Simulated assay, not measured.
Amino acid sequence: MKICSKKRGIIINSLYNPLFQSLTLPNGVILKDRLGVAPMTTYSGNPDGTVSDAELTYYKRRSNIGDLYISACIAISENGIAFPNQFIGFDDRVMPRLKQLASEMKANGSKAIIQMQHGGRQGQPELISTNETVAPSAVTSPNSTTVPRELTNEEIQAIIRDFGETTRRVIEAGFDGVEIHGANHYLLQQFVSSYFNQRDDEWGGTLQNRLKFSMAVLKEVQDIAAKYADDSFIIGYRVSPEEIHGETVGYTLAETKVLVDLLIENGVHYIHTSLFDFKTPPAGVTEEGSIVSILSKHINGRVPLVVVGSVKTPQDALEALQEGADIVAMGRQVLIDPEWTEKVKAGNEKDIFTTIPKKRVGKLDIPESMWNLITSYKMVQVAED
Score class of each variant (00 low, 15 high):
T256C: 07
K257E: 13
K257P: 11
V258R: 03
V258L: 12
L259Q: 04
L259D: 00
L259A: 00
V260S: 10
V260N: 05
V260F: 03
D261G: 05
D261L: 01
D261M: 00
L263E: 00
L263K: 02
I264N: 08
I264C: 02
I264M: 03
N266S: 02
N266T: 00
G267N: 02
G267T: 04
G267K: 06
G267L: 04
V268S: 05
V268W: 05
V268P: 00
V268R: 00
H269P: 04
H269Y: 12
H269S: 08
Y270M: 04
Y270K: 01
I271D: 01
I271E: 06
H272F: 09
H272S: 11
H272Q: 06
T273L: 13
T273E: 11
S274T: 15
S274P: 10
L275F: 03
F276P: 00
F276S: 01
F276H: 00
D277K: 01
D277W: 01
F278D: 07
F278R: 06
F278P: 08
K279I: 03
K279D: 12
K279P: 12
T280S: 10
T280N: 01
T280Q: 14
T280P: 13
P281F: 08
P281Q: 01
P282K: 15
P282L: 15
P282W: 15
A283Q: 15
A283E: 11
G284K: 09
V285Q: 11
V285D: 14
V285M: 13
T286E: 10
T286Q: 09
T286G: 05
T286N: 10
T286I: 08
E287P: 02
E287H: 00
E287I: 04
E287M: 02
E288P: 05
E288D: 03
G289F: 00
G289D: 02
G289M: 06
G289H: 05
G289S: 10
I291C: 08
I291T: 09
I291L: 13
V292D: 04
V292L: 09
S293K: 11
S293A: 09
S293Y: 12
S293R: 12
I294K: 05
I294C: 06
I294V: 07
I294F: 09
I294Q: 10
L295I: 05
L295Y: 03
S296E: 02
S296T: 02
S296G: 07
K297S: 15
K297A: 12
H298G: 09
H298T: 08
H298R: 10
I299M: 11
I299D: 10
I299K: 11
I299A: 06
N300A: 15
N300K: 14
N300Q: 10
N300P: 05
N300I: 00
N300D: 09
G301F: 08
G301W: 11
R302S: 07
R302K: 14
V303C: 06
P304W: 09
P304T: 06
P304G: 14
L305N: 14
V306G: 13
V306Y: 09
V306F: 15
V306R: 11
V307E: 15
V307W: 15
V308M: 11
V308K: 08
V308F: 14
V308R: 11
V308L: 14
G309A: 10
G309Q: 13
G309D: 12
G309T: 13
